[in-house]
Amino acid sequence: MTVSFLLNGKSVSLDVPPNKRLVDVLREDFHLEGARPGCYAGECGACTVFVNGELTHSCLVPVFAAQDTDIITYEGLADTQEMKYILAGFDAVHYHPCANCRQSRLLTAYALLTTHPVPERREIDAFFSGHRCGCSSMGELYTAIEQAVDMRRRSGRHGRR
């Protein structure tokens, strides 16, 4: 089956078995390795990507369902200013999630801070509820997100609620 979609802003199409999981397509056919297959059950969140602007576990998406969608992976956002603030915030408080889930957490933080410029803890909880990797604590995550918000605020790009 030929499937076409927008991938990180570029139109792509490929011939692929329709039930192949999106995470495998991204990794094997496009060599985008930010999303990792963890549990293949939508539980761990390591495979998170944006599908039509929504955070989605790509291990649960058969590639035929991605037809005509707009998919953004971590690699598509890695160079944005917003992501740089998040990375700087994470680094500043030495928040280092494991290599399995790091990029999907960064992507989720991006989604959070785009919709909630100064998020409350319950909003952080809600956004990260799909991440069940036990490599780091929520306490560390709260501090890292608050630090990213602070860095963005100091740079003058702070969006008001």
């Binding site: 909880d125 990260f128 509820s129 069940r132 036990g134 490599c135 780091s136 604590s137 929520m138 306490g139 560390e140 709260y142």
Partner: peptide, 23 residues
């Protein structure tokens, strides 16, 4: 602290809990 916190969350899941967001 991070290790203990993640272990507590995992322990809650092992007990059948799901909402792991407690500090």
């Amino acid at each position: 602290t991070s290790l203990v916190e993640s272990e507590l969350h995992a322990a809650f899941e092992a007990c059948g809990g799901y909402n792991r967001f407690f500090e």
